[in-house]
Design a binder for these strands. Structure first.
Lengths: 204, 204
DNA sequence: TCGTTTATTGAATATTCATTCAATATTAAA
DNA sequence: TTTAATATTGAATGAATATTCAATAAACGA
């Protein structure tokens, strides 16, 4: 219970930064704007984040944390069952809950920073590694998939998920969106299906 | 031969904008900086691009044009042959020539703008549609693939390519990069293989 | 060659930016 | 209660921002 004020204020500031980024785009958010939005002087923000880069790093940590939360329910579900039902897994992986607690625009703005900031790049990489490992451990819990190369399978699945996440962001028409979504779900389903067939026929 | 000066200057400005974006990141490039870089007053830039948004739109058109060029050799190759060799196609699709004539950081910076600018979003969507159609027409030229759903197959292939393009940008270690690249190539190869097998066995 | 359009310049604008600083208020420790 | 640390304020900084404008130079069509 050291400096609870400090931590709460920092959270509040990051949260305000996120709100505004969502509304106006990250590159258009200034310290002054955050201050006005939260009803505090810019100097107070600078007190907790001595320069803007630190503020941005804080936002990114927040974003990446949120992003991870999307997969929480999947983990809970499948780590109890010790059995992977492909269609269920696919539906969870592509569930669009992420749209509610997460802003794609901010995510990609931060991602773009990856190319000129090593620290940010490392953070993003860490996230992606963690997500793959999570899926791997889910697959490892299944009696069938665990006999195959689960790391490889997780890699193949996530490249489709991320490609889909990227591409679908461009599509606004709901019907078209759902049509494409179905394709990519099927594609991942196919990966799981093929893998389990290969494993089972190896057994004979 | 109307106003050749005008068009040349505009190109020059966009090109300077691109150079600086590559170096310092798009959001850090100002009109003044472009001017200094090209040895011209900011007011001249404003003469050709009356506001910054138009300048950004110009850059994006340039970027998307460049992006398309990556696939030019693939098109040429396969539109002559009237036959798709899966391993050859895969190698071309994943060839990293793009790294030479194209900057990923700028591409994703522009992509991030997609979320708050309808015009930009439409441009990006148009590009992605065009790329898929190109691949579709390549597949349509092949006696085997043309009997299947080429649009669907193109969609599935590109979601892997784009997921890979996104994900591999995070990886700097060459060995790791190549290991992952191999996985994604194999994944696309698999898609082509499976499709042709399905078509051929339907024949019997 | 004259007149008009276009290209180019350089100076000036108000606004916004991140950041600094000294002063005050609040909290926590002694 | 005194002291020290932290939180908060508001004013001020200079640098950078996009954009405007009036003036000059160059190119071009008649």
């Amino acid at each position: 219970m050291k400096s609870t004020i400090r931590e709460e204020r920092k959270k509040e500031i990051i949260s305000g930064f996120y709100d505004l980024s969502r509304l106006e785009g990250m590159e258009n958010v200034s310290i002054a704007k955050i201050g006005k939005h939260l009803g505090m002087p810019p100097s107070l923000i600078m007190h907790y984040f001595p320069n803007k880069r630190l503020l941005v790093l804080g936002l990114i940590a927040h974003i990446l944390h949120q992003y991870q939360l999307i997969y929480k329910p999947i983990i809970n579900k499948f780590e109890k069952d010790h059995k992977v039902y492909p269609d269920l897994l696919v539906n969870r992986l592509f569930s669009r809950e992420w749209n509610l607690l997460f802003d794609d625009g901010v995510f990609f703005s931060c991602y773009a920073m990856t190319f000129r900031d090593e620290t940010i790049k490392k953070e993003y990489k860490k996230l992606h590694l963690k997500l793959r490992n999570t899926l791997k451990s889910i697959l490892d819990n299944d009696p069938v998939f665990s006999r195959g190369d689960t790391a490889l399978l997780a890699e193949k699945i996530f490249v489709v998920i991320e490609g889909a996440y990227y591409y679908l962001s461009l599509i606004e028409d709901e019907k078209e969106y759902n049509r494409k979504l179905k394709i990519f779900k099927e594609q991942v389903f196919q990966l799981l299906q093929t893998e389990s067939q290969l494993i089972l026929q190896d057994n004979d």
